[in-house]
Amino acid sequence: MTPTRWRSARWDRMPVGRKILLMAFVAVRISLTVSALVDLADRPAESVRGKKRTWALAIVGVDIIGPLAYYWRGRSADPTTGPPAPDPVDPTATAGRAGEPIRG
């Protein structure tokens, strides 16, 4: 490639539309990687196909394909082995200030 081609790729000379597209692409990459790592960390080892360490390296090291592969093939299809469901809302819980009972 010629040096002028490389200079045209500088941020200050890049068209606005290309900047927006590049920022959106980077945001998707980061959010996919972070969400896959958080899901992997929260998920018990029994509900992951393969070793968690291997999936963590694939998620971080293989750019967009790593997180997508983890979501597609790395998680177990068995819903009973996934992360525990949140507890149902307790009707005796407090609202507002700490310790103040709910009045109804």
Rank of each mutant, 00 (worst) to 15 (best):
M1I: 05
M1A: 13
T2Y: 11
P3H: 01
T4E: 07
T4H: 11
R5M: 10
R7D: 13
S8F: 03
A9F: 06
W11P: 00
D12S: 08
R13C: 11
R13Y: 05
R13T: 09
R13E: 05
M14W: 09
M14C: 08
P15M: 15
V16W: 03
R18N: 02
K19A: 03
K19E: 04
L21S: 10
L21R: 11
L21D: 06
A24G: 15
A24E: 15
F25A: 13
A27T: 14
A27Q: 13
V28N: 09
R29Q: 07
I30C: 08
S31K: 09
S31T: 15
S31Y: 15
V34S: 10
V34A: 15
S35Y: 04
S35R: 12
S35E: 05
L37T: 13
D39Q: 06
D39A: 07
D39T: 15
A41Q: 03
D42C: 05
P44H: 07
P44A: 10
P44T: 09
A45R: 08
A45F: 08
A45D: 11
A45H: 06
E46T: 12
S47A: 10
R49S: 01
R49D: 03
G50T: 03
K51H: 05
K51F: 12
K52I: 06
R53Q: 10
W55L: 01
W55M: 07
A56F: 04
L57C: 01
A58S: 12
I59H: 02
V60F: 05
V60L: 12
G61H: 01
V62N: 13
V62S: 06
D63M: 14
I64D: 02
G66D: 10
G66Q: 15
G66F: 14
P67R: 04
Y70L: 10
Y70T: 12
Y71G: 09
W72S: 11
R73Q: 04
R73G: 02
S76K: 11
S76V: 10
A77Y: 11
P79Q: 12
T80Q: 10
T81E: 01
T81F: 06
G82N: 03
G82I: 09
G82V: 04
P84Q: 07
P84V: 13
P84N: 05
P86H: 00
P86I: 00
P88G: 06
V89E: 00
D90W: 09
D90R: 08
T92W: 07
T94K: 12
T94Y: 13
A95F: 15
G96H: 04
R97Q: 03
A98Y: 04
G99Q: 09
G99W: 00
E100W: 04
P101E: 02
P101N: 05
P101V: 08
I102Q: 01
R103S: 09
